[in-house]
Nucleic acid binder design. Structure first.
Lengths: 141, 141
DNA sequence: ATATGTGCAAACGATTTGCAACCCT
DNA sequence: AGGGTTGCAAATCGTTTGCACATAT
C-alpha cells in the first residue's frame, strides 16, 4: 500500500473517522490518477472499479481529506477544481485555458513569497495555491 | 464621462456592437464599484439605479466586455469571480478566502515572470492573471 | 431594414445537503 | 450499541441559453 494511502487512513482514524471501502477506493483513485485530477476524473476512475460508489461520496471524501490536510485543490477557469496531495512539491502553475499544470521552481517561490509578504502582508500558502498562467501549447494556439 | 467608459463604448462600436442604455449602465457600475466587484456586486449596484436590467444582461455585458479585452475576471474559491479593467496596474493577489485584493509589486512580478518562463515555458499574463493567497485578516482568523 | 440586444424563464454544471438505511469500531 | 458514513434525490449557487420581442444603427 502506498505511503500516502496509509497516511491518509491514519489521519482518518486519528480523528475518529471510519475507514470504509469507499474511502480506500477514493484514496487509491487519487494515487493512481494523473497528478492533478478533477473530482470528475477521480469519479470516472472509480466508476470502472466500483460503480456503486456515489458521486456525492467522492465529493464528501475529497472534502474530508481536504480538512485533514491530506489533499488540496486548485480552482480552474470554469468552476472545476483539480486535487492533489499536499506533499506534492509546493506551488503550481495552472493553465487558465486547458488546465495543464507545471511546478514553480522552489527557489523562485521562496523569494517571491518573502517579497510579497513584506510588501503586502499577503501569504502565498504552500500547497494551497496556484498561479494561473498560459501554457506553451495554449500560447501558440 | 470616464475614459474607461468612452474606451469601452468605442470598442463596442468598432465591432459592430450597439451602445444600449443597459450597457452604459453596466460600464458605469463597473467604474463606480470598488476595484474588484463580483458579478453580483455589479448587479446590486445596478439594481439601485435601474432595477429593470436583468441579471442575465449583466452577465452578457460582462462577457462581451471580456471578449473586447476591456475587463478580465479572476476566479475565487467558490465559483464566484471578480472583475476589473484590464488596464488596472498589472498582477493581483486575491485572498482565496474573502476576495480581498492587493497588488504585486511590479518589479517582483517582472523578475518572477522571467524565471517562470525560462524554467517552465508558462506565461504569466498581464491583466489576465492573479495569485491566490491569504490576506492578513484571514490569516489570523 | 435588419442585425444586435434584452427580458424572462428554464437549463446548466459543479458541488452540497437532508434523510433514512447501513456498517465500521 | 452508537455514531460516523453512504446512497439517493432534491436543492443550491453562479452562470448560461433559447426564444419572442424590442431597439440601435
Amino acid at each position: 500500500m502506498d505511503d500516502r494511502s496509509a497516511e491518509a487512513l491514519n489521519r482518518l482514524r486519528r480523528v475518529g473517522g471510519r475507514v470504509t471501502p469507499q474511502r480506500r477506493i477514493v484514496i487509491e483513485a487519487l494515487i493512481d490518477a494523473h497528478p492533478h485530477p478533477s473530482a470528475e476524473d477521480v469519479a470516472e476512475r472509480i466508476a470502472e472499479v466500483a460503480p456503486e460508489i456515489h458521486l456525492s461520496t467522492v465529493y464528501r471524501t475529497l472534502n474530508t481529506l481536504t480538512e485533514l490536510d491530506v489533499i488540496t485543490h486548485v480552482h480552474l477557469d470554469h468552476g472545476r477544481s483539480v486535487y492533489h496531495f499536499v506533499d506534492d512539491s509546493g506551488p503550481h502553475l495552472v493553465c487558465r485555458n486547458c488546465g495543464a499544470v507545471a511546478h514553480v521552481p522552489a527557489d523562485t517561490f521562496g523569494a517571491v513569497s518573502d517579497e510579497v509578504a513584506s510588501a503586502t502582508g499577503f501569504t502565498l500558502g504552500h500547497g494551497h495555491f496556484a498561479w494561473s498562467a498560459t501554457c506553451p501549447d495554449c500560447t501558440s494556439a
